[in-house]
């Protein structure tokens, strides 16, 4: 009976999972916030601010999309 438990690998898995989850949800939430700011700015007639907010939102969602693609590559590997 071999009972060598790799606590290191376990802790690593847990830590990475925590950080990645919080990071993805944070970035996605920032994207939603930026999108909402754009709507407010456009409604107020300030297109300059709106464009900046839209660019920020796009960046956030693109980062999330990249994370999903990386996830897909892990599944297919």
């Amino acid at each position: 009976m071999n009972m060598s438990i790799k606590w290191n690998a376990l802790a690593q898995t847990a830590g990475i999972s925590f950080v990645v989850t919080v990071a993805i949800v944070t970035v996605f939430a920032l994207g939603i916030m930026a999108l909402s700011r754009r709507e407010t700015a456009v409604a107020a007639g300030s297109s300059g601010k709106g464009t900046v907010a839209l660019a920020g939102a796009s960046l956030c969602f693109a980062a999330c999309a990249a994370a999903v693609l990386y996830g897909l590559s892990l599944i297919a590997a």
Binding site: T13, A14, S17, F18, T21, V22, I24, V25, T26, F28, A29, L30, G31, I32, M33, L35, S36, E39
Partner: peptide
Amino acid sequence: IVAGLAAWGATKLAYRITRKNSTEATNKGF
């Protein structure tokens, strides 16, 4: 436990970041 902790932290942050949005816009996005 790990998934629970991660979801707990992520939920806290998600609500905090979007607290100035309208609930409707936030829900639509998520």
